[in-house]
Simulated assay, not measured.
Amino acid sequence: MSWILAVETSTEWCSVALGRAATDGALECFSRHEHTGARSSARVLPAVAEVLAEAGITLADCAAIAFGAGPGSFTGLRTACGVAQGLAFGADLPVIPINVLTMCAESVRSGTSPWPADTRVLVALDARMDETYAATFRWDAAAMEWSMETPVQVGPPETVAQPDGAFWLAGNGSTVFGERLQVAAQASRVMPEAMPDARAAVAIGLRALARGETIDAADAMPIYVRDKVAHTIVEREAIAAEKAEKAAKAANAAAGEAA
């Protein structure tokens, strides 16, 4: 019953989990999942120490270290990758990079039993810069793993494609973008609370470990799906001006109706 340590900091949450498969097949897990904003880098190592102490083991007792490889925040991905690499080098452990969107799909499945056959999970996460990260997943019962039916894409929420057949929508895209994420209206279920979580990374990592799908720490890399990671100052000013103009128009319209 191998232990896996998982680190996930691709969003504003610092998520750390330590888990293994129990004798009854359930997941035994110790975790910290905290909204830290930009402070994940300061919180992640103390959280690792806490879950190891709670389980009563050391890092050397683990079989591998999993990390949220992306897509996500540029700084957050580098934090998770760097922490995983550093810990793995120190303990001579392999690492398991995990797609962040797959974690969202896994979080949905872990809370649903039995899993409805042929149901897809469309994950749509806020990618900042007025865009979403999106991909569609299907649970392959024979392989006991997620199959990615569409590649990860980044773009305006209006461009997120609707999957074929019945699907559930996971991730905070529906909350952040509202009606602009038009596919939400067609989803059988909408679960904005299904976000990247290290506990889901443990479950995915244990299956990957059983298949021998680990890599050397030196080969660990974040997954980036766009080259541009932030708006320029000019772009931010233009966006602010556009928002101010819209707000002014709305206020003038409201004043006209009141008159």
Results as ranks from 00 to 15, higher is better:
V229R: 12
E237W: 14
R226V: 02
I223G: 04
R226D: 09
E193P: 08
A238N: 08
V229Q: 14
V229I: 10
E213M: 01
E193N: 15
R211Q: 05
K243V: 03
R236S: 05
A198Q: 08
V229M: 15
E235R: 05
E235P: 03
R199P: 08
I239Q: 14
A238Y: 05
D227W: 07
I239D: 11
E193D: 10
A200C: 13
D197C: 15
R199K: 11
P196D: 10
G212R: 05
I233R: 06
L209N: 07
I215L: 13
K243Q: 14
R226G: 00
L209S: 03
A208E: 13
A194G: 04
R207K: 15
R207C: 12
D216L: 08
K243I: 04
R236F: 07
A217D: 01
I204R: 03
I215H: 00
A220G: 08
K228D: 03
A230T: 05
A200V: 02
D227S: 15
V225M: 10
I204C: 01
K243C: 05
K243G: 01
A241S: 11
A201T: 00
D216V: 03
A240W: 06
P192L: 00
A203S: 12
A198N: 06
P192T: 07
V234R: 11
E213Q: 15
G212L: 03
D216T: 07
V234H: 09
A240K: 14
V234I: 10
R226P: 09
R211P: 12
M221F: 10
R211A: 08
T214G: 00
A198H: 12
V202Q: 06
I204E: 02
A218Y: 12
E242D: 15
A200E: 01
M191D: 11
L206M: 12
A217V: 00
R236Q: 11
L206T: 03
G205S: 05
P222E: 03
P222K: 00
D227C: 05
R211G: 04
E237A: 13
L206F: 14
P222Q: 04
D227H: 11
I223M: 15
K228F: 09
I239P: 04
A218K: 14
K228A: 04
V229W: 14
A208M: 09
A210G: 10
A241D: 08
A218N: 11
A198G: 10
I233L: 13
I223K: 12
E242R: 07
H231P: 09
V234E: 13
R236Y: 08
D197L: 14
A201F: 11
A230G: 13
D197P: 13
E242H: 06
R207V: 07
R211C: 07
T232I: 03
Y224H: 05
D216M: 08
A200G: 00
I215V: 12
A203L: 10
A240S: 10
D216K: 15
G212Q: 02
E213I: 00
A241R: 09
T232C: 07
P222L: 00
P196R: 02
G205L: 08
H231K: 10
A220M: 01
V229K: 10
P196F: 12
I239N: 07
I239C: 04
E242S: 04
I223W: 06
A210H: 11
I223Q: 09
A208P: 06
A240C: 03
M195T: 11
P196Y: 10
R199N: 08
D227N: 11
R211T: 09
M191H: 09
M221W: 09
K228T: 13
G205K: 04
E237L: 07
A238F: 02
M221A: 13
